[in-house]
Design a protein around this nucleic acid. Structure first.
Lengths: 207, 207
DNA sequence: CGGATGCCTAAGCGCTTGCTCAGCTTCGGG
DNA sequence: CCCGAAGCTGAGCAAGCGCTTAGGCATCCG
């Protein structure tokens, strides 16, 4: 699947067509330049329409960012809760959480960059809503680690600190990942799952 | 040492006094709102002077960012090369690299946030210069890991990937660290040094 | 056929931005 | 005591910003 097709799927449920074109244009522009450096003229131009047309589909520029941030955060949270509630040992569940979370951040690194690094530009109430979702993500990872410590599979001196570090490591993938780079999203996901297991003291147990 | 004293020391060699006040004001403003959302009026206001005074000490707003980014990157690079060239085993040198790098990112998280997350706003030639410094940082960490693999202390399947991941984990400290939080910069540094050792297969070897 | 609705554009309004400039004050050296 | 340099300010310019408005086409429903 190439990048274009991904974007098409990612925002498939945004209608009408023009609104979808605007949201994908905004994702690209925000990821490239940042929210504040992006103009509504630029977004409209990328979507092939006049600046005024943007305001038929979205009330403000901030609403576009909110829409992107909301969809992205909900998706990321779903990946993590699915891994938490999925079957298997804590080792398997942590590996699955990191693998899917990292794969998403690599595959959709344009969207992920906006989702992870532009939330400071949200309006206050929208920001509060997003922060709640993020607390949920943190909680999901922490709960998997707690299970692993309880079962004796993990050896972790500081559970909240380790949960934060694992999530932090995964999130930062969005910052550096390059689609033209050496590794595919799948490879990075698998590699990072191994790193996370080592971080909780469950990696390469043959040592 | 409190935050004020740190800032005083950090930019102690910037003269005259007004230029130093401007650079510390810019660091605060850029870290809070981001480069593009910060106005020259805001920077000048925080420094207690009129907007026009800024241009006596700095040619443009971008020059302020460049100055901050340059000083910060050079400092970070120095920490890592000192650890690479310092004595001791690879285990000790990697631990020292991560400990000092993380401590700096936590202690100076305001500056670090600007240094790590605002470089996209730099002018093209300045950006190229900074990217070269960053490659140096990456090289320092990679070289410590290579030494550890050669000596048999580390067990790493992908050296460049692991170097990137370790650096990435450390950098992200600037994003989430809060001075009012649970842990001190020293504690976070020590904790992350342990995590990094686990990531290279050298942590908690008694397992 | 007539009118309402959905989607779009050209033009532009009010405001803020980065930055400039003429002129003021302060102060050390001759 | 005067002069030039250094440091600063109030006022403001040109450009660009987010967003609005008035109006033009289609399309569809009665």
């Amino acid at each position: 699947m190439d990048a274009e097709a991904q974007r098409g799927e990612e925002w498939a449920d945004v209608t009408p067509d023009a609104a979808r074109r605007l949201v994908t244009a905004a994702v690209e522009a925000f990821a490239e330049r940042g929210y504040h450096a992006t103009t509504t003229r630029d977004i409209a131009g990328r979507a092939g329409m006049s600046p005024a047309a943007l305001y038929i589909h979205y009330k403000t520029k901030e609403q576009l960012l909110y829409r992107i941030s909301s969809v992205g955060h909900r998706l990321a949270l779903d990946l993590l809760t699915a891994a938490r509630d999925g079957g298997g040992t804590p080792v398997e569940r942590l590996a699955e959480a990191v693998r899917s979370f990292v794969r998403w951040h690599a595959e959709h690194h344009t969207t992920a960059r906006v989702v992870q690094y532009e939330l400071g530009a949200l309006a206050e109430d929208h920001y509060a809503e997003i922060v709640a979702l993020r607390r949920g993500s943190d909680g999901a990872v922490r709960s998997i680690i707690e299970d692993g410590v309880r079962s004796g599979d993990f050896d972790v001196p500081d559970i909240p600190g380790t949960a934060l570090a694992v999530l932090s490591l995964c999130i930062d993938v969005a910052r550096w990942f390059n689609a033209d780079g050496r590794r595919t999203p799948d490879e990075v996901g698998a590699f990072y799952a191994g790193l996370a297991l080592r971080m909780v003291g469950a990696g390469t147990p043959e040592r």
